[in-house]
Amino acid sequence: LQLFIKTLTGKTFTVEMEPSDTIENLKAKIQDKEGIPPDQQRLIFAGKQLEDGRTLSDYNIQKESTLHLVL
């Protein structure tokens, strides 16, 4: 599923993930694309901070959802 990642600077980029992927996987993918170390990434969806060990489906993140990346 394609997700939109929006940064505080207003930049938006996309990543391609599976619902079974963990937040950790997502942070690694963001590191590949943007060079931001996972330990500096905080991801927010629907007002909640996402925890590394959980999956996208745990948070009911669907295709074309927008996640906010806070550094």
Rank of each mutant, 00 (worst) to 15 (best):
E34A: 15
D32L: 10
V70Y: 14
I36G: 02
N25R: 15
I30V: 06
S65E: 08
Q2A: 09
I23R: 00
I44E: 06
V70L: 12
K48E: 15
E16S: 08
E16W: 14
Y59T: 02
F45Y: 12
K63C: 04
E64H: 15
S20V: 09
K29C: 04
T14V: 10
L71G: 07
F13S: 02
D58Q: 07
D52W: 03
T7I: 13
L26Y: 00
T12L: 12
L69H: 01
Y59D: 01
F45G: 02
D58C: 02
F13Y: 06
D32N: 08
H68Q: 09
S57M: 11
G35K: 10
I44L: 09
G47S: 06
I30S: 00
L26G: 00
L67S: 02
N60Q: 12
T7Q: 12
E24R: 10
S65G: 06
E64F: 15
K63H: 14
Y59R: 01
D21N: 10
L43C: 01
Q49T: 14
Q49W: 11
A28M: 15
V70I: 07
K29Q: 07
G47T: 05
Q40L: 11
I44Y: 15
T55L: 09
T55R: 13
S65N: 08
T9G: 12
A46V: 06
D39E: 15
D39N: 14
Q62V: 15
D21I: 03
S57N: 15
M17N: 03
K29H: 07
T14F: 08
K11C: 05
D52I: 06
L69Y: 02
P19N: 15
I23P: 02
I44G: 03
R42P: 01
G35A: 06
T12G: 08
K29R: 09
R42S: 10
L1H: 07
R42M: 11
Y59K: 01
T7D: 08
F4G: 03
Q40A: 09
F4E: 07
I44W: 15
G47R: 04
Q49K: 09
M17Y: 14
Q40K: 12
T22E: 02
V15W: 02
T9Q: 14
Q2E: 09
E51T: 07
E16Q: 10
L8K: 15
K11H: 14
G35W: 04
T14E: 10
K11E: 09
T22F: 11
L26A: 02
L69A: 02
S20A: 10
P19G: 09
L3Y: 04
D32I: 08
G10W: 03
Q40P: 02
F45N: 03
G53E: 08
Q31N: 13
L67D: 01
G10I: 03
K33C: 04
S20W: 13
G35C: 03
V15C: 03
I5W: 00
K48D: 06
L43Q: 00
N60S: 08
I44P: 00
Y59A: 03
L43R: 00
L43N: 00
Q49I: 15
F4D: 04
I36M: 06
K48Q: 13
T12V: 14
G53C: 04
L69T: 01
S57A: 12
K29I: 11
I36W: 10
G35I: 02
P38K: 13
F4H: 14
Q40R: 13
S57I: 09
E18W: 13
D58P: 00
G10A: 05
P19A: 13
G10T: 03
Q49S: 08
D52T: 07
I5D: 00
M17I: 13
E18T: 14
F45S: 03
L67Q: 02
P19K: 08
F13M: 06
K63M: 13
Q31W: 14
H68K: 05
L1W: 13
K27F: 02
Q41L: 05
Q31Y: 12
Q62S: 15
K27H: 02
S65L: 04
K6L: 10
I36S: 05
E51P: 02
I61E: 03
G10C: 03
T9V: 09
T12Y: 08
K33W: 07
T14Y: 08
V15A: 03
T9W: 11
E64L: 10
G35P: 02
I61V: 07
M17V: 10
L50F: 02
Q40V: 11
E16K: 08
L43H: 01
K6P: 01
